[in-house]
Computed example of a mutant assay.
Amino acid sequence: MSRDAVLVLGEALIDLVPEPDDRAALRAQPGGAPANVAVGLARLGTPVAFAGTLGGDAFARSIEHRLTGAGVDLSLCGRSDLPTTLAVADVRPGGTAYHFHTAHTATFELQDRAGDATRFGAVYAGGLAAVVEPAASAVAATARAAARDGLLVVDPNVREDRSLDARRSLAVLRDLCTAAHVVKASDEDVARLWPDRAPADACRELAAGGRLVVMTRGALGSTAYTSRHPPVEAPAVPVEVVNTIGAGDAFMAGVLAWLASASWRLDLSPAETGAMLAHASRVAATVCAQAGTEPAAAAPL
Rank of each mutant, 00 (worst) to 15 (best):
A260R: 09
L151W: 13
H104V: 07
F100M: 03
L67T: 04
F108H: 13
L128G: 07
R92F: 05
A114V: 03
G246A: 07
M252F: 08
I245W: 09
D187N: 12
P231S: 08
S137K: 13
D149R: 15
G45E: 09
L74Q: 10
D116Q: 14
I14Q: 00
S75P: 15
L76W: 14
A136P: 14
A33G: 13
T46K: 02
V154C: 09
L16Q: 07
A185Y: 08
R66F: 02
G126M: 03
P300F: 06
V17F: 12
G32V: 05
M276P: 14
T118K: 01
A253Q: 07
A103W: 07
A147L: 13
Y225W: 15
G218A: 02
G121A: 09
L128A: 06
A298C: 10
G45F: 11
A208M: 09
L212T: 02
L44V: 04
E188I: 04
D15T: 04
V241G: 02
P270C: 14
D21P: 08
S2H: 15
G69T: 06
L193P: 15
L7D: 03
P156Q: 00
R92T: 08
M1A: 14
A89S: 02
R204V: 00
A103H: 15
E160R: 15
M215D: 03
R3V: 09
T223R: 15
T84M: 05
S281M: 04
T244D: 05
C77E: 02
H181L: 06
N157M: 12
H65V: 13
V39W: 07
A219W: 11
R168W: 15
F251N: 01
D149V: 06
D189Y: 14
A106M: 13
A224W: 11
T273F: 06
E133N: 10
A97Q: 13
A208Y: 07
A296M: 03
L212A: 01
D201S: 01
L67V: 08
A42G: 09
A146H: 03
D189F: 13
M252E: 05
L41N: 04
A208C: 03
V39Y: 12
A260L: 05
D4W: 10
R162G: 11
S80H: 10
L13N: 11
V88N: 09
H99E: 12
A28M: 10
G32Q: 04
L176D: 04
A250D: 00
L259H: 07
C203H: 05
A299E: 08
L110N: 00
G69K: 08
V8H: 12
V37A: 02
P295F: 08
C288P: 08
V190E: 01
R92N: 11
D73W: 12
A70Y: 14
G126Q: 02
C77I: 06
D161H: 10
Y225H: 11
M1T: 12
Y124Q: 03
L220M: 01
C177P: 08
D201Q: 14
V88P: 11
R23K: 14
